[in-house]
């Protein structure tokens, strides 16, 4: 401080200023490019005229789902959604490999905060909130056909309920006859992983079952679940949504557990006390 900065720093500052000046130019370029787009809300825009009227007009009759987003997600574009679900699962698996399973430990350590908060108010509020959150998650899953909702949303809600329990109650029960490394509330890391695996396998399994009964992969119309094809597709779609729910809820649990374990095992302090510029 006080003396002139070293020459290297000066060059870095000039480069940073030049870099910062590039972003207003990028913004202008984006806005100019967007001027070519169809008017906002134009019903005749290309995005709304090509395949979308087919989805809107036929989805309810063909798939039995009043929520067209669910019909497109789990039926018309089921193959795409299988890929998305696999991406989510792979992210959870990647986090596990990076953090918790490093060094080839055979037994995964217990996850969660190192000890419960011990606040009566927090504890009582969580006791009331968590069941409501978990129940609402299942409601969102089941009502995905007729109202906003579905497997992704319900799964994230369920996962957030699990995280809330872990944050407030910690990993292990004091005494109580259970192994101290077993989480007292919610599935363990292994359990979350099994949930996620069951979800992705169930999704692919429904697709393969459709093949076994003579249809294409993920073309649910051939499944022997009844005579009305729309009803069959509705049931199969619910199965798909439940599989997505399991994968997302399990992966959210795996992500939280592995990161909290990783921070503890790698000696990363939670809240290092240093400023944000660190």
């Amino acid at each position: 401080m006080g003396s002139s900065p070293p020459p290297g720093r000066e060059a870095t500052r000039v480069r940073r200023l030049l870099g910062a000046a590039a972003f207003p130019a990028l913004f202008l370029g984006l806005v100019l490019g967007m001027a070519e787009l169809p008017e906002f809300g134009d019903p005749a825009s290309p995005a709304s005229t090509h395949v979308s009227p087919r989805f809107i007009e036929d989805a309810a009759a063909e798939t039995g789902a009043a929520n067209m987003v669910t019909a497109v997600l789990a039926d018309y574009r089921g193959y795409d959604t299988l890929g998305e679900t696999a991406v989510i699962f792979a992210a959870g698996l990647g986090c596990l490999v990076i953090l918790a399973a490093a060094g080839g430990r055979p037994n995964l350590p217990a996850a969660g905060m190192s000890h419960p908060f011990g606040s009566v108010i927090l504890d009582a509020a969580t006791r009331i909130l968590v069941p409501v959150v978990l129940l609402f998650a299942v409601y969102v899953l089941i009502h995905g056909h007729i109202s906003p909702g579905g497997g992704f949303q319900g799964g994230v809600l369920f996962g957030s309920g699990l995280i809330m329990m872990r944050l407030v109650w910690g990993p292990a029960r004091e005494g109580g006859g259970r192994h101290p490394d077993v989480p007292a509330f919610g599935p363990s890391l292994r359990g979350s992983l099994i949930l996620a695996c069951a979800g992705i396998l169930g999704y692919a399994g429904i697709g393969l079952a459709a093949m076994a009964f003579g249809g294409e992969f993920l073309n649910y119309g051939t499944l022997p679940l009844g005579s009305d094809p729309a009803h069959v597709r509705e049931l199969a779609t619910l199965g798909i949504e439940a599989a997505v729910f399991l994968t997302v809820a399990g992966t959210v649990g795996v992500l939280f557990d592995t990161i909290s374990i990783g921070m503890r095992e790698n000696g990363v302090p939670i809240g290092s006390g240093r400023g944000p510029g660190e």
Partner: peptide
Amino acid sequence: NPLPHTLMLTAIVVSVSTTGL
């Protein structure tokens, strides 16, 4: 149009997973 909603629904959850990773 339900199609962009569908695509973004999955994109949101994928962004959660990538953030976690």
